[in-house]
Amino acid sequence: MESKSRRTFLKETAGAALGLSCGGSVLTAACTSGEDSHGGGPVESQWAMVIDMEKSQDPAVREACYEACIQAHNIPRIEDPEERIRWIWDEEYQDVFPDQVHDQLPDDVKHAPVMVLCNHCMNPPCVRVCPTQATWKREEDGIVMMDMHRCIGCRYCMAACPYGSRSFNWRDPRPLIDKDAQGNVASDFPTRTRGVVEKCNFCAERLREGLQPACVEAANQVPGGEGALMFGNLADPGSEVNQVLSSQRTITRRVALGTGPNVFYIV
């Protein structure tokens, strides 16, 4: 708690210092209108995900999640890792939790697959650096959103993200998206244009309709995958995620950076 209040204090001081420069005509507009709240301001509620690493060891579970996400968001299939678009995918335990790895750890633990996605951080560095507010932390539910109309493709957010959770569209993704016999893509979720950055949005478009994120729903439908991914709101004391977080041993990625991830892992 102490570190959190210090962070808030630093933020307010920095804000005040910046506020002093709000004299210029260009700046005045931004200073007075208070356009969007951005940076790690307080949120009214916060969606969070808990991933059960044991249950998600089953490749069928993970594959179902990835496929569901690809279909729900019309994600192009790009094999080349240099250009691949990733929302939720596999990484090895040693790369996901580099601070937890030591020499005595057996190889199968080091190389165990872990599902990774955007952490929808409490204090997201990507939001802090974005020069156009194309990415911001939504106040009402804590989702780190992307506005594809606003993004100028400077890729500063990708340099700032400590989790590698953001992907840039190096080329027009449309020709590489799955299509049915009629040439239609799998969902009405807008495809992206080249030159913008994208990432997991916690299925904001599905939450809006009262649905669970596509990956969570898909995991629950795989035999043995029930509860591999749990999703809920931290502001709701009775939510499944709160129950798990208060009763089980969970960790998040790279805690020392102070970003406050909202994707938790049951060890």
Binding site: L18, V26, L27, A29, A30, C31, E35, H38, G39, R128, V129, C130, P131, T132, Q133, A134, R150, C151, I152, G153, C154, R155, Y156, F168, N169, T193, R194, G195, V196, V197
Partner: peptide
């Protein structure tokens, strides 16, 4: 060099249309 690095160069004015005080890129501009 900043301009040629952009993925969406036609949207470059967004940096001015939505000035963002917490971004160092805005201050650099």
């Amino acid at each position: 060099f900043i301009f040629v690095d952009m993925g969406q160069p036609t949207r470059v004015t967004n940096v001015l249309l939505h000035p963002t005080l917490n971004s160092m890129m805005f201050w650099d501009m």
